[in-house]
Simulated assay, not measured.
Amino acid sequence: MNYLRQEQAVLEKYLPNFIEKIDSLSLLEMEGTASPVIKLFKENHGPKLVIPKQYGGHGATAVELVRFQRMIGSISPSLAIASNMHHFSVATLVEMAKNVNGMEWMILEAIAKENLLVASAFAEGRAGSNILEPFLELTPSENGGYYVSGSKKPCSLSHSMDLLTFSAILPDANNEKKIGVVLVASDVDGIKRKEFWGSDLFKASESEEIILDKVHIHEQLVSYAGNLGELDDVQTRGFIWFELLLCASYVGILSGLVKRVLLLDHYQDEDVAEVLYETETATSALEGLAVAIENQEKNESLLSRSLHIRYAIQRATERASARAVELLGGMQYIQNPEISYLYSAVRALAFHPPSRYRMTKNLVNYMKGQPLIIS
């Protein structure tokens, strides 16, 4: 089968034993709480995928990452969601290493050498809130560094993470609120996990609540300070990476449905082609965005482009998944829980911030010449 051939080649290049090790597992076994997929991802050195070779990583290209996430999504939606958050966090560290004179390069080397998983506690989908406004705030410690208390829910990789990264409001000498990026080991005093995820979807992504109870943060693990509510170049690049890899993951989940359609022999070619048009166009758009990232195109226009692609893919996956399930038939939907699982999982793209409804006016205004506002 030619479908997903390029994507499978990338997966086998970077995780050569992964497919062999999960071959005996059903989709629902891979998606349950006892799933081994995150462990296998780590054992096969998946955490170093995004890290440049100069820091000891695999140095995968942005196009390869799109293909990798699409393939993972077609196999295990939970792993796609979890690995997406790791890759996004590491890609942001890579951007910081390019732009900030700090310890980021040392952290990247440590992640690659020690094969560490990084969880992300950045944006949280709180109704009516601005996703750029941190929900955590650092307070100075009498012994140097800072303390932080609060929680993040949900947070993927909550149990398997080695490091946790998050944005926080920094104390400033001029009483001006700044935003910083914080990195902390997952086993320090004060970090707790609490059950949060109530859905049957994405159980294996370990998306639970992380509680920070007066966790001490060394001042060297607080990276650059930016202005609250404003996207600088580093944050913008991180945002673009997030949208790229998130969309690739969900196109992958859709691809898992489409692959099942291609295995049927009773459909009309024009029916399945209708679904393929949606998935392959979405993939082409993401690969084009990946090339633009590699070419270091202007950040604000690239962010606008990434959001337009994200919302277009959001609608395309809705249409294509509905058509794919229709082609698979009612009996498959009723008797094969994998079909209904994938169908429900695809729709979750709409729940990741920033929502299409909050961004519609902002994107239209940007095209009219106003600054791009993320809300």
Score class of each variant (00 low, 15 high):
residue 7 E to A: 13
residue 7 E to R: 08
residue 9 A to V: 05
residue 11 L to W: 03
residue 18 F to T: 04
residue 21 K to M: 13
residue 22 I to C: 02
residue 23 D to I: 09
residue 31 E to F: 06
residue 31 E to H: 03
residue 33 T to N: 14
residue 37 V to D: 09
residue 41 F to R: 05
residue 41 F to G: 09
residue 53 K to E: 13
residue 53 K to C: 00
residue 58 H to A: 11
residue 59 G to H: 09
residue 64 E to A: 02
residue 67 R to S: 10
residue 67 R to K: 15
residue 68 F to D: 01
residue 70 R to G: 02
residue 71 M to G: 08
residue 75 I to M: 05
residue 77 P to R: 04
residue 78 S to G: 10
residue 81 I to Q: 12
residue 82 A to N: 05
residue 83 S to C: 11
residue 84 N to R: 07
residue 85 M to S: 14
residue 88 F to I: 08
residue 90 V to K: 10
residue 91 A to N: 13
residue 98 K to T: 08
residue 100 V to D: 15
residue 104 E to F: 09
residue 111 I to C: 02
residue 111 I to G: 03
residue 115 N to V: 06
residue 115 N to Y: 04
residue 117 L to C: 01
residue 117 L to N: 03
residue 123 A to G: 08
residue 124 E to Q: 15
residue 125 G to S: 06
residue 128 G to V: 01
residue 129 S to N: 11
residue 139 T to C: 08
residue 140 P to C: 01
residue 141 S to C: 09
residue 142 E to P: 04
residue 145 G to E: 00
residue 147 Y to F: 15
residue 153 K to Q: 10
residue 157 L to A: 02
residue 160 S to K: 01
residue 161 M to H: 13
residue 164 L to D: 10
residue 167 S to A: 11
residue 169 I to W: 05
residue 171 P to L: 00
residue 173 A to G: 00
residue 174 N to T: 00
residue 179 I to N: 06
residue 181 V to W: 13
residue 184 V to H: 05
residue 192 K to C: 13
residue 195 E to F: 12
residue 204 A to R: 06
residue 204 A to G: 08
residue 205 S to D: 07
residue 209 E to C: 12
residue 214 K to W: 06
residue 215 V to A: 07
residue 217 I to E: 01
residue 221 L to D: 15
residue 223 S to W: 12
residue 223 S to K: 03
residue 223 S to D: 03
residue 224 Y to M: 14
residue 226 G to A: 07
residue 230 E to Q: 12
residue 237 R to A: 00
residue 241 W to P: 03
residue 242 F to G: 03
residue 243 E to F: 14
residue 252 G to A: 07
residue 253 I to Y: 02
residue 254 L to V: 07
residue 263 L to R: 13
residue 265 D to L: 09
residue 268 Q to I: 09
residue 274 E to N: 11
residue 284 S to I: 11
residue 284 S to C: 11
residue 288 G to T: 12
residue 288 G to L: 10
residue 289 L to T: 02
residue 290 A to P: 01
residue 293 I to W: 03
residue 299 N to G: 15
residue 299 N to Q: 15
residue 299 N to H: 12
residue 304 S to V: 00
residue 312 A to Y: 14
residue 312 A to T: 13
residue 312 A to C: 11
residue 313 I to A: 09
residue 314 Q to K: 12
residue 315 R to V: 14
residue 320 A to D: 09
residue 322 A to T: 14
residue 326 E to C: 05
residue 326 E to T: 12
residue 327 L to E: 06
residue 328 L to C: 03
residue 333 Y to M: 13
residue 333 Y to W: 11
residue 337 P to V: 01
residue 340 S to A: 14
residue 344 S to L: 03
residue 347 R to M: 14
residue 347 R to P: 00
residue 348 A to S: 11
residue 351 F to N: 14
residue 352 H to L: 08
residue 354 P to Q: 10
residue 355 S to T: 15
residue 363 L to S: 04
residue 367 M to R: 11
residue 368 K to T: 02
residue 370 Q to P: 00
residue 373 I to K: 09
